[in-house]
Amino acid sequence: MISKNLAAASTKPLILTILRGGENYGYQIIQRVKELSGGQLEWADGMLYPVLHKLEKDGFVSTSWKLSDEGRRRKYYQITDLGRKELEKDMKQWMSVHSVMLKLWGNNPAFES
């Protein structure tokens, strides 16, 4: 399980990355996160929505209400240019952290010793 703090910090790049592959709605986003993390990354489902709301307020995503085939109203999220830039910044930061960790641990992660 990934710790709460780390999960919270990774939410933003995670969502933005998923949205980079095309617009999506909340439920689908959560399913994707679950799939990708193999269950390692899990929040109470509802908690995603305040985060999406925050991204929207910050201008990283834009939204539109659409009607699904079953006639259900869904709020779709699209990544904005500002969002892409933000994601790039985030990726750089994550990668630099990652490379530091890699150097420190080598190919022999701590949990094996």
Partner: peptide, 12 residues
Amino acid sequence: YIAELESHLRDE
């Protein structure tokens, strides 16, 4: 917000 949450609930 509630509408969005409702649609999530129904999907689930």
